[in-house]
Amino acid sequence: MGAVSSIGGDPEAIFGALCAGRGGLAELRAFDRGRFRATAAYEIDDRPEPGGDEPGRATRWLCDAIRQALDGAGMDHDLTGVPVLVGTTFREQRSVELWWRGQAPLAPSGLYFGPALRAEFGCTVTYTPASACAASLYGMAMATDLIALGQAETVVVAGTDALTESAFGAIDRVQNRVPRALRPLDRDRSGMLMGEGAVAVVVRASGGHHGPVAGRVRGVGLNCDGHHATRPSGPSIGRAIRDAHARAGVKAGDIDLVMLHGTGTPLNDATEMAALAEVFAGRATLPYVTAIKSMTGHTCGGSGLLSLVTALLAIGAGRIPPIAGLAAPIEEAAGFGLPIGCVTGAELRTVQIDAFGFGGLNAVAVVEGAPR
C-alpha cells in the first residue's frame, strides 16, 4: 500500500496522524483566497514557493504512491503487462488551469497518466475510471473482476487528485453555508472542503506465495442510479451495501466498522447514515463508524481507496481513528459507535468502505485483515 496526503507521506504516517486526531486543514495556498467564500482546504504543502503552483502534482503523487505500494509488496518497479487502474475526478485539470492563465506550459500528453506511468514503470495497460468520488473503488471492483476472470494475476489500483480552482469555486458557490472545516455527522456541519492526495495498492489473486499481505478484499458492490445530479439516494446506497455484502459472503452482523463516505454535507451525511441504519437494523449492537475526511478533506477520486488503506491499518493495529470535530452527532447516527477519540484495543475483522459520487455513483467494498 502507498499513499500521500496533507497529513503524511506514506500510509503509516497518515494513519498515525488520523489516530492522533491531527488534520491537514490550513489557509488556502493554491490560489487567491479573495475570490471565494471558503478560505481553507486540506492541501499537500509541496509547492515551490508560497502563493505559487506548478503543474503535474497529481501525477507526481500518483507515481510516489505506486512506488511505495510496489516496495511494500516486494515487487520491482517494472509493471509491463500489469493493469494499472487510476481513479480520478479531475486528472490534471489543475495543470490546464495554470496553462490557461499563462503560468505554465502544457503538453497534451500531460493531460492523462498513461505516458508518465509508462516512463516511470513501463506500464503498457492503464485505465482511468473517472467515476467522480467513487472512482478508486470502481477501480477496485474492476481489478477484482480482472482477477476473477483470469485476465490478470496482479493489478495495481490507485487514485489521485489535486486541488483545482474551477472545482473549488463551483463547490464554494453551490454550498449554502461556508464551511471552516469538514465536520462529518455533526449537527453544525456546513459542507465539504477539498483535500489533495494519492493512494495505491497492489491487488493479487489469493493463494500461492505472493510476499507480504496487508489484507483481503472480500467483495465490491457498485451501482449508478442517476437519481439526481448531487442529491444521494438512500435506497440506492442501501442496494450497493447489500450487493457488497453478498459478493463478500458476509452478513450485516459481520461488519465491525464502516469507513463512511462522510463528506460533511447535510444531505450526504443524513442519507448515508439513514441507509446504514436500515441495512443494520436488527443488530443488537451497531458497528463503529468513522470518517477520515474530517482530517484529510475530500480527496475526491482517491478518497475511497484511502479509506480502504486506513481500514486495513485499523484492523492490523486494533485502532479506530476518531471523527475530528464531532461535537453534536446528527440524529441519524444514533446507536452507532462514534469514535470521539481514537479507539484502542478494537477487535476488528471485517470492515466496510463507502464511496459515493455525484450522479448516484455508489461503490462499497468489504475487506478483512491479513491471515494470522
Rank of each mutant, 00 (worst) to 15 (best):
G24I: 12
E332G: 04
A3G: 11
E12K: 13
G357N: 04
G169Y: 08
H228K: 11
A135E: 12
N268H: 13
L70V: 11
E332Y: 06
L85K: 07
D71Q: 13
L62Q: 08
R67Y: 02
A38Q: 11
A275N: 02
A20V: 05
A130W: 02
D64F: 02
G226Q: 01
L267H: 03
A277C: 06
A141P: 05
E43P: 05
D71M: 02
G74P: 07
N268C: 04
L260Q: 10
P83W: 07
L312T: 13
R231D: 01
G72A: 14
G16A: 10
P105W: 10
G253W: 08
G318I: 03
R247D: 07
M140E: 06
V178E: 10
D161E: 14
L149E: 08
R216Y: 09
A104S: 15
R173L: 08
P287I: 00
F280G: 00
M295V: 10
R183K: 14
G9W: 08
N362A: 12
A26P: 00
R22D: 10
C133I: 12
L25A: 01
V201L: 12
E49P: 00
G325M: 03
V217F: 00
A252I: 01
I323G: 08
G221Q: 03
A334Q: 00
A355M: 08
E332C: 01
G34T: 12
A162R: 13
T344V: 14
A143F: 13
A69L: 10
V82K: 05
G9H: 10
D172A: 08
R204N: 03
E196R: 10
G335Y: 00
E120H: 14
V250H: 05
G341M: 02
L222E: 14
G191Q: 09
A198Q: 07
G122Y: 07
L306A: 15
F336V: 06
F168D: 08
A275S: 14
G304V: 11
G122N: 12
I7L: 04
W100T: 14
K251E: 15
T344G: 15
A116I: 06
E368I: 09
G215F: 07
G52R: 15
N223H: 08
D161M: 11
P11E: 01
M295C: 09
V125I: 15
L146A: 14
A355T: 11
T80G: 15
G359E: 04
G8S: 05
R183H: 03
L312S: 09
Y42A: 02
R60F: 03
V157F: 05
V279F: 00
I44G: 11
A69W: 10
S190W: 01
R33W: 00
I255E: 09
L85S: 04
G8T: 02
R239Q: 14
A20W: 06
